[in-house]
Computed example of a mutant assay.
Amino acid sequence: MKKFIALLSVFLLVMAGCSQGSSGSTEKESTAKSDPSKPLVVYLNDFDEMIGPLFEEKTGYKVELVSGNGAEIQSRIAAEKGNPNWDIVWMDGQAAFARWDKEGILLGDWKPENEKNLNELGQSLLSKSSSYFPTGAHASSVIVYNTNEISKEKAPATWDDLAKPEFKNAVGMADPAVAAPAYPFVSWFFQDKGLEEGKKFFGNLFENGAKVYPKNPNVVEALLNGDIKVAALQESNAYTMKKNGEPIEIVWPKEGAPASVRYAAISKSSQNTEAAKAFIEFLLEKKTQDEMITAGAEGYYSSSVSDVKGPSDRLENPNLLIAEPEWSAENEAVIKEWFADQSVK
């Protein structure tokens, strides 16, 4: 099943690329103002319980939220390419936004007024085309270990430690073809080390018995039921486990943690551009960011907006390692296909 899902993801990437040439000639940027009777359609993978009511209360615009994991949202957008049903996409994963930008399906050359609110991290994450806007970044994986199985003295401290013999058949991670944060995690290693060395790095993990699960909640379950003892786990899942009193500890590796950037973008075909632009402005307000930080499990991230403090129990100013969006997009199909091949060996 993992092989099928991963190859489906690769297929959609290829199909999206093949249709790129025609998108510019068939899709025209909308200049229409918003229809108050028509809700703003937002595709997202987090904050779906709180962001709608907050936005409606702040602006008066109605909003329809469509939530899903990273693979689901990307598949939906690819399937709707000829007739997009969305106005806003707001999700993890810098590669997807770079790819959509290149395909010409995002509204570009527009700068929100609240771009001035961005801090140094936010400024560094801005797209060159002004087509997608960073709302924050979080560790796509930190190291988490079960304290009933591993002592603090013997716990892994670096990513390379996960390939040590003492962790044979004991490590797990999420599938980069399914979980939105998982591809930014693996892509950083491939970019930093180069494609061949990246394959060697993860190949060593797989030779040591590392296991791949569809999504991060599946990794959490495996860590608790004893299927694995150590995990490369997205940070909000890790801190939620800690808050729930589970027998785990979180390790921020010495070299840093690969990060996933959460971006927001407007569909070039949107007929609701006034409301869509208001949504981007809303996301880049300090008050909105403060609300998201305090919202619960998904509030574990580094905000792109100035003067927004992270959760008190999170590492302050963590070293986030961010793969370049364009590089990640260009190499996405190759990397995901390679992972799919490893899962069936």
Rank of each mutant, 00 (worst) to 15 (best):
K2Y: 00
F4Y: 13
L8M: 13
V10H: 04
F11W: 09
F11P: 01
L12V: 02
A16E: 12
C18W: 15
S22M: 13
T26A: 01
D35N: 14
P36V: 09
L40N: 05
N45V: 03
F47D: 09
E49T: 14
I51F: 08
E64C: 00
L65H: 11
L65P: 02
N69P: 04
A71C: 06
A71G: 05
E72S: 13
Q74H: 11
A78D: 07
D87H: 01
I88A: 08
D92S: 14
R99K: 15
D101N: 13
G108S: 15
G108P: 08
W110Y: 14
W110P: 01
K111V: 11
E113R: 13
N114D: 13
L118S: 01
E120Q: 14
L126T: 12
S130F: 02
S131G: 10
A137S: 13
H138C: 13
S140G: 11
S141Y: 07
V144S: 08
Y145E: 09
N146I: 00
T147F: 09
S151R: 13
K152P: 00
E153L: 04
A155K: 05
A155L: 10
A157R: 15
A157M: 13
W159I: 10
L162C: 05
F167P: 01
A174K: 02
D175I: 04
A177W: 00
A177F: 00
A179I: 00
A179D: 14
Y183I: 10
S187H: 05
W188H: 12
W188D: 04
Q191P: 04
K199L: 03
G203Y: 05
F206T: 02
G209V: 10
G209N: 06
P217Q: 13
L224W: 03
D227P: 03
L233A: 08
Q234K: 07
K242L: 15
K242T: 07
E249W: 01
E249M: 11
V251I: 14
W252V: 02
P253M: 12
P253A: 12
K254R: 11
K254L: 06
G256F: 07
V261P: 02
Y263H: 06
I266L: 09
S267N: 12
T273M: 08
T273S: 12
K277V: 03
A278I: 07
F279W: 13
L283F: 06
K287W: 11
K287S: 14
K287N: 15
D290C: 09
D290Q: 15
D290A: 07
I293P: 04
I293W: 00
I293T: 07
A295R: 05
G299I: 05
Y301Q: 10
S303K: 11
S304W: 00
S306D: 14
V308Y: 01
G310K: 11
G310P: 09
P311A: 08
P311D: 02
P318Q: 12
P318V: 05
N319I: 14
L320T: 04
I322T: 04
P325M: 05
W327E: 06
A329E: 00
E330A: 08
N331M: 12
E332R: 13
K336F: 03
Q342N: 11
S343P: 00
V344A: 15
